[in-house]
């Protein structure tokens, strides 16, 4: 029994078996993620207080809700004068995708017992994407936890800074309304390598755009989730997905 294995036991991030190349790849991505999460968190803080929330409320959203799109949707509906129930619906409908992200994360990390309680908190777009970019379990584990922790710290710190600065600056004047779609596109981009993925993306765009004027906030995005279910059930030659390799256990 290797000593490092015993030492690592009990920690959420068991980094045994991660190659230098994988570690370097993850570390390089993390630098960018930290700076962008700080900037994106500042964007959220500024937009949040501009929508009428207090600094404390903005921080609670970033610490507890901790899922960017839902947070932007929540403060967006409040800022537009929407009812609290509409804001809650928009946040939860957008947050529903995190439940589906739990599938590849669970499949790769296999968290047991109570560790599922805190692992769940970190299941978001960025951590799922970073985990999906790795091919074996130790690297997936490192990518998930490193991304989750770096992102959380930067996101909450950014929110505080942005909420304080937001009292005096106009987020739109800094172009920060372009931040969210640009970040979501960057997260989507690496997935668009196959015709199948591109077709799904195109169909999702069409359905979401068609639903914008007729459906409640959040519904156009949730409708795309149904397309993903349909796409997953369609028979196809390419049954393997980069997110969920068949050797999820990582055992020889």
């Amino acid at each position: 029994m290797p000593r490092s294995l015993a030492l690592a036991r009990g920690y959420p991030a068991d980094m045994d078996g991660v190659t230098t190349t994988q570690r370097r790849q993850i570390t390089r991505a993390l630098g960018g993620i930290a700076v962008y999460a700080l900037a994106f968190g500042m964007t959220f803080g500024a937009v949040s207080v501009a929508s009428g929330l207090t600094l404390a409320q903005s921080l609670v959203l970033s610490v507890v809700m901790f899922t960017g799109a839902s947070q932007f949707a929540f403060v967006g509906v409040i800022g537009a004068g929407g009812l609290p129930v509409a804001a809650i619906s928009a946040a939860l409908l957008l947050g529903a995708r995190n439940a589906f992200y739990g599938v590849p994360v669970s499949a790769a990390l296999r968290p047991q017992g109570r560790s599922r309680l805190w692992t769940a908190h970190f299941v978001i777009d960025e951590t799922t994407a970073m985990l999906g970019a790795q091919q074996d379990t130790p690297a997936k584990r490192l990518a998930f936890w490193a991304t989750g922790i770096v992102l959380f710290v930067a996101w909450v710190a950014g929110t505080a800074a942005g909420a304080i600065a937001g009292e005096v600056i106009d987020p739109d004047a800094l172009g920060l309304d372009a931040a969210a779609p640009a970040v979501f596109l960057a997260l989507l981009w690496p997935h668009l390598r196959t015709l199948r993925a591109s077709a799904l993306a195109g169909a999702s765009v069409l359905v979401a755009v068609a639903l914008i004027p007729i459906a409640a906030p959040g519904v156009p995005v949730l409708a795309a989730a149904l397309l993903a279910v349909a796409a997953g059930l369609l028979p196809g030659r390419d049954r393997t997905h980069p997110e969920v390799p068949s050797d999820v256990d990582g055992l020889p």
Binding site: L188, S204, I212, V221, A224, A231
Partner: peptide, 27 residues
Amino acid sequence: HAIAGAMPIAMLSALVVVELLDAGGRW
């Protein structure tokens, strides 16, 4: 597995266009 792989592709695509083209329940 197939659905889980397809999910981020569909939802991120929809998120991008909703962020860009949704002006409060209208295009």
